[in-house]
Computed example of a mutant assay.
Amino acid sequence: MRKPLVDEFDVLLLDLDGTVYLGGQVIPHVPESLAEAARRGARPMFVTNNASRSPADVAGTLTGMGVPAAAADVLTSPEVAAAMLAATHPAGSAVLVVGAQALADAVSHVGLVPVRLATDAPVAVVQGHSPDTGWRDLAEACIALRDPSVDWVASNTDTTLPTDRGLLPGNGSMVAALVAATGRTPRVAGKPNRPLLDEGVRRAGASRPLVVGDRLDTDLEAAVTAGMPGLMVLTGVSGPADLLAAVPAQRPTHLAFDLRGLLDQGLVAEIADVDDPSPWTVTVQGDVLVLAGESGGEAAADLRALAALARSAWASGITAVRADGPSAAATLQRLGLSGP
């Protein structure tokens, strides 16, 4: 019998929004799954692109949700963005901050001086998510960036942010406004770039990391970029149809409905493993993938159907699916996939 997935790793680089919590509520099965993972030697390290809160604030929120965490267990993109700036600019240099106080605090922590106006002669602009960012903030950054010698670092470029009201504009949408206004492109600290993951591994003193996230275009792309295995959970932004259409740079190595897959061998699939027990077959018929087989509607069987479809979709370039038989049809319906 295969050992639990978590036993292969010594640190879990966990996304937050859509993976651990959503809309201010912890996602089911997360607290007990992470507690057991830690007990088995895989340290949870929360790596987030969100730049609006400090590590201590995030740790407090997690602890209040039943996921015990200290500030040292949380790594934010502002921390990494500030470190990138400190590596290239002298201590005491002014940095124009577009974002929340947590981002300004991160800049101060590395010996740089946060400012809010272009007239303060900043050597760089650093930009992170804040729900209070407005036109005047972007205008100050635009003025500063007219000087080509002024550096520009974005904490992340997520175009959207998952909330209990659906997807809302993320930092990437604000970054895109400045890209359009200035014609410049920032250096990026957060996912899908690898600095955030590399720092998480270094901080944990780990050598066998697993990236865990819900978004193909940030979490899983970062895993591929960093050469790390990635577990996609279906609790947030990206869904089954997105998985079938995933480009090579965004493809996870493992798949689970939620974090129970870390511990239950039946609730995780290694997508490349063609020998993984499965009641399903997938054939290519013209421009459609046809799923055939029988199951009793178990979650484990549904997961293996999705993994088999992903393997075939990635190999063939075909993403349209249909069912052969009522059992397969019911599975596709539960997965939110429909045929032509």
Results as ranks from 00 to 15, higher is better:
99 G>R: 02
92 G>S: 07
83 A>P: 03
87 A>H: 06
113 V>H: 13
119 T>N: 10
102 A>T: 08
120 D>H: 15
120 D>M: 14
70 A>Q: 14
101 Q>W: 02
81 A>E: 06
118 A>V: 09
121 A>P: 07
93 S>Q: 06
81 A>G: 14
84 M>W: 01
90 P>N: 07
87 A>N: 07
115 V>F: 02
86 A>H: 01
116 R>I: 11
98 V>Y: 01
113 V>L: 10
70 A>N: 13
106 A>Y: 04
103 L>C: 04
90 P>Q: 10
72 A>Q: 11
115 V>L: 10
88 T>K: 13
98 V>M: 04
108 S>H: 12
104 A>I: 13
121 A>I: 08
122 P>G: 09
99 G>I: 08
96 L>M: 13
102 A>Y: 00
107 V>I: 15
120 D>F: 01
87 A>G: 14
116 R>A: 15
80 V>D: 01
97 V>C: 06
82 A>Q: 07
102 A>H: 00
122 P>A: 14
111 G>Y: 07
84 M>C: 05
104 A>H: 09
111 G>V: 12
75 L>E: 05
90 P>V: 10
85 L>Q: 07
120 D>G: 05
103 L>V: 14
78 P>V: 03
114 P>S: 09
99 G>T: 12
111 G>S: 10
93 S>I: 10
96 L>P: 05
92 G>Q: 11
85 L>A: 08
78 P>Y: 01
106 A>I: 10
108 S>M: 10
81 A>W: 02
88 T>V: 14
118 A>C: 07
70 A>Y: 01
110 V>W: 00
99 G>H: 02
99 G>A: 12
92 G>N: 09
70 A>D: 14
121 A>M: 12
83 A>N: 00
105 D>C: 08
85 L>F: 05
99 G>N: 09
93 S>D: 11
91 A>S: 15
116 R>V: 13
105 D>Q: 14
118 A>S: 15
114 P>Y: 03
113 V>I: 14
82 A>F: 04
71 A>E: 13
76 T>I: 05
106 A>C: 10
118 A>K: 06
107 V>K: 05
103 L>D: 07
77 S>E: 09
111 G>Q: 09
96 L>H: 05
104 A>K: 08
91 A>Y: 01
100 A>Q: 11
90 P>E: 05
78 P>N: 07
86 A>G: 08
116 R>N: 09
106 A>W: 02
116 R>Y: 12
112 L>S: 03
79 E>F: 00
109 H>P: 04
120 D>N: 14
115 V>K: 08
75 L>G: 01
95 V>M: 06
117 L>K: 15
118 A>N: 05
